[in-house]
Write a protein that binds this DNA or RNA. Structure first.
Length: 870
RNA sequence: GCCCCGGUGGCGGAAUUGGUAGACGCGACGGAUUCAAAAUCCGUUUUCUUCGGAAGUGUCAGUUCGAGUCUGACCCGGGGCACCA
């Protein structure tokens, strides 16, 4: 009996796949296409077992779809621009380019050793000028179309990474990479007009039925569409308080509200502290200037905001109620009004909004309820400390409005406002435009030249790419492109006068917003071939981490729409990813020394129930299970793992036990279990007689009886079950079913029943085919051993024989009053009456119903019998 | 505070439309093999039990002939959003 040796077997099969060009896409355009993609990696160094889960899942799908007859595109590339390369340059004095390409080479080898069915002919690296020159062309196209623009705005500044960040990259007020608290700076920067698509991006979510509900919800919340109205309040005493500039600032104050139906409950207007009118009045009013300063000094952290009291100051300004000219309202400035949302101004309706109520109570402003909650009595309903924010019936308002239900009242008020020319229905969004400038070196240069006479001028297309200079110095902080002696000095392409090159680079999320399109045909003279993109897009199955739920996945959806509208891609929906799967991580135990150092799991051991560091003998602390990461020292290197156990073990392990969307814990014993399984499968195959005497593995063992028939049933049932599991992304269930199947096959060893050899040969062939997407090397080895034709990766997926999926008899559980008491073996086509009669005669049923009357017997054919007795 | 997801043996988890709860794996225990160990193989493994059976899927109620699955309230864990008008 031989053992299975992956280190000998696996390289042989990878060479065979390479030689046959097995995974080349587009080989047969008559087949339906299937595009499967895993989020491409950042070349950070080396791949560990944690990374491999993502690629393995995509690979199962790719291999399965190929077997199902699809022309599969499964490419791989490198999200190669980014800060770690610059940090490496600073710390180790290496060139970011060299560092990146070395990592790419190392990681490519690792991915290849994992046995992934990838089409490497489509490989791309975003830091390659061949890639980013097209990105620069797309940028210029967006600019031409008004989808890219430059403006001065308050932006998020990361003081550690020394660059600005998009809103999406600020998590809890901190930079997404550095974790440093973000500062606000007024800078002139490039933006993409993602807000143009805010509506469409929200509406499009509904069609993404193969996306996780959770991701769609997160995007919906992030875009934050609210429908309501803009309402303009005429200023009653503008001349007094705003002076000659009243007209410039507007003699009306516009607010946004989602509840125009509560307009008659208005008690005040409130402006943001940095609203232009607030600022203007503050020029001559020290009290208000002091208030603004005080608001600016307030923290922006979660805790600060939660505990911050409502603060405000009366600006002295008064406005007229838009639907009642005799009614004047005071105008305040309040710290809870944000200048960045809506119009930066609100009308306070204290009975219907908790913040307004808190504010009104504090400053003694009137609280008039105008919405009557369902079931409440108009005569007695009052508001104390809690506002009523729900829907109901309007009262205490204008005659024409009283008595209307909330939705109708909203519509009615909007029409009245429109008639009066003082408002209109409106939709606002939380989403802001995407800030894409970065003050970094290792990114795609923005192809713009700044000229004193001509302004910002696009680099002519025939001069693209604008290449990054390679002779850069990281000796001082800041952007090396700014410090470069010559790179930024160019002549204006329009007037020829000396000008300055834009030294900002594009956010690396721009690179990942269209790479999936370039994969379809990475040609030289275009971002991608329009025809190829039209055939392959959208991606049928995308696999990646949940951490990109908003960032990458939202940007890519925007970018695809923008490319569509620039005529670059023919994809009417604008949706790049038809199916999305967000996989869980591989987590592993962590250990720390008492002084806080992270320790490798192999550097600690258990002594008398507690953990100690082997080197020092000092106690160590067992930490939480954490996602594998270098900084926590709990990674398992993929090369090391493959050398010890083989790629198939890694693949099988990361798919076992936990559902794909949840985390899976890395354990030595789990890995050993996989190793045992592989050896057992191999020895089961090895126990079959030599291939010459065996039927070919695809031959049905027709006419089997008894034990042989039972094995055939198990085999064909397994085909159906494993197929379902793969289709439904339940790889852990597929793994379990394959365990069952392999165990069943193994149990038939030594049986001399009639027709058994043929049945075993057939089953072994089916087992190999079902294993193939999960453990492709072992599957090839078995296939060859059985004398299968060609490579198993080229074989068509097996179809179960329908007749073998059904039994002639059914085992029905019998319940009495819902409790299982017995079971009954009946013919599959037994009539309900027969089954009922048998159930009534059952010994256990008789015993349990002794002394009771059987009221009813429910027979669910083929499933269950329930006897109701009392 | 709002929204979403989850809670099943010692552990990871299975049970896809309401129909035999605990598949499969890990661990543990017992046995075989061995001078011994490793490896391997066989068996047991939800709990209680008077060995007939009884209880059991976070808690409490409900719907149903029948609930892990559906409904309501609550408890616990995880995630997202957050003075967003």
């Amino acid at each position: 009996m031989s053992r299975y040796n992956p280190s000998q077997s696996e390289p042989r099969w990878r060479a065979a796949w390479d030689q046959a060009d097995s995974f080349k896409s587009g080989a047969d355009p008559s087949r339906p296409k299937y595009y499967v993609l895993e989020m491409f990696p950042y070349p950070s160094g080396r791949i560990h077992v944690g990374h491999s889960r993502n690629y393995t899942m995509g690979d199962v799908v790719a291999r399965y779809k190929k077997a199902r007859g699809f022309d599969v595109l499964h490419p791989m590339g490198w999200d190669a621009f980014g800060l770690p390369a610059e940090n490496a340059a600073r710390e180790r004095k290496v060139n970011p380019r060299d560092w990146t390409y070395e990592n790419i080479e190392a990681m490519k080898g690792q991915l290849q050793r994992l046995g992934l069915a990838l089409d490497w002919s489509k490989e791309i690296a975003t830091c390659d000028p061949e890639y980013y020159k097209h990105q620069q062309a797309i940028f210029l196209k967006f600019w031409e179309k008004g989808l890219a623009y430059r403006k001065s705005a308050k932006v998020n500044w990361d003081p550690v990474d020394n660059t600005v960040l998009a809103n999406e990259q600020v998590i809890d007020g901190k930079g997404w990479r550095s974790g440093a608290p973000v500062e606000q700076r007024e800078l002139e920067q490039w933006f993409f007009k993602i807000t143009d698509y805010a509506d469409d991006l929200t509406d499009g979510l509904e069609g993404l039925t193969r996306w996780p509900e959770k991701v769609r919800l997160m995007q919906q919340n992030w875009i934050g569409r609210s429908r309501g109205a803009h309402v303009r309040f005429p200023v009653a005493n503008a001349a007094e308080h705003l002076g000659a500039e009243a007209v410039a600032l507007g003699d009306r104050i516009e607010v946004f509200t989602t509840r125009p139906d509560t307009l008659f409950g208005a008690a005040f207007l409130a402006l943001a502290p940095d609203h232009p009118i607030t600022r203007h009045i503050a020029q001559d009013n020290p009290d208000i200037a002091a208030f603004i300063r005080r608001c600016e000094q307030m923290g922006t952290s979660e805790e600060d905001i939660e505990t911050a009291p409502k603060l405000g100051v009366d600006l002295g300004l008064r406005v007229k109620h838009p639907l009642d000219p005799d009614w004047e309202l005071p105008v305040w400035s309040a710290n809870f009004v944000l200048s960045s949302y809506g119009t930066g101004a609100i009308f306070g309706s204290p009975a219907g909004d908790q913040r307004d109520l808190d504010f009104a109570r504090k400053y003694d402003l009137p609280v008039k309820p105008v919405v009557l909650p369902p079931g409440a009595d108009a005569a007695t309903h009052t508001i104390e400390d809690e506002a009523f924010t729900g829907v109901g019936v309007v009262y205490n308002s204008a005659e024409w409005l009283n008595g209307l239900e909330t939705p109708e009242a909203i519509e009615t008020v909007i029409s009245k406002l429109e008639e009066a020319g003082l408002g209109a229905g409106a939709t606002t969004f939380r989403l802001r435009d995407w800030l894409v400038s970065r003050q970094r070196y290792w990114g795609c240069p923005i192809p713009v030249i700044h000229c004193e006479s001509c302004g910002a001028v696009p680099v002519p297309e025939d001069q693209l790419p604008v290449r990054l200079p390679e002779d850069v110095s990281f000796d001082r902080p800041g952007n090396p492109l700014d410090h470069h002696p010559s790179w930024k000095h160019v002549d204006c392409p329009r007037c020829g006068k000396p000008a300055r090159r834009e030294t900002d680079t594009l956010d690396t999320f721009v690179c990942s917003s269209w790479y999936f399109a370039r994969f379809t045909a990475p040609v030289e003279d275009a971002p991608f071939e329009a025809e190829a993109a039209a055939r392959w897009l959208p991606v049928d199955q995308y696999v990646g981490g949940i951490e990109h739920a908003i960032l990458h996945l939202l940007y890519a959806r925007f970018f695809t729409r923008a490319m569509r509208d620039c005529g670059l891609v023919d994809l009417p929906s604008g949706e790049p990813f038809e199916g999305l799967f967000t996989q869980g991580m591989v987590v592993h135990e962590t250990y720390r020394a008492e002084d806080g150092r992270w320790l490798l799991p192999e550097d600690v051991e258990e002594r008398d129930g507690s953990v100690v560091e082997i080197a020092t003998g000092k106690p160590a602390i067992r930490g939480a299970l954490e996602k594998m990461s270098k900084s926590k020292k709990n990674v398992v290197d993929l090369d090391r793992f493959i050398a010890d156990f083989g790629a198939d073990t890694a693949r099988w392990f990361v798919l076992s036990d936990s559902p794909p969307e949840r985390d899976v814990e890395y354990t030595e014993s789990g890995v050993e279990g996989v190793w045992r399984f592989i050896q057992r499968v191999w020895s089961t195959i090895d126990a079959l007689p030599l291939s010459e005497t065996l039927p070919k593995p695809v031959t049905p063992a027709a006419g089997a009886k008894g034990e042989a028939l039972a094995l055939r049933k198990t085999a064909h049932r397994s085909v159906a079950e494993v197929t379902d599991a793969i289709e439904g992304f339940r790889f852990n269930s597929g793994v379990a079913k394959l365990h069952d199947f392999a165990n069943a096959l193994r149990k038939t060893e030594g049986s001399n029943a009639e027709g058994m050899l043929a049945a075993r040969a057939e089953a072994a062939g089916l087992l190999a085919q079902l294993l193939a997407p999960f453990m492709p090397h072992l599957a090839e080895e078995i296939w060859a051993r059985l004398g299968g034709e060609g490579l198993i990766c080229d074989a068509a997926w097996p179809e179960p024989e329908a007749a073998l999926l059904e039994d002639e008899t059914a085992t029905l559980p019998i319940q009495v009053n819902g409790k299982r008491r017995s079971e009954l073996v009946v013919a599959k086509d037994a009539s309900p009456d027969e089954v009922e009669a048998l159930a009534r005669k059952d010994e256990h049923v008789k015993r349990v119903t002794d002394g009771l009357t059987i009221r009813k017997v429910i027979v669910v054919p083929g499933r269950i019998v329930n006897v109701v007795a009392n």
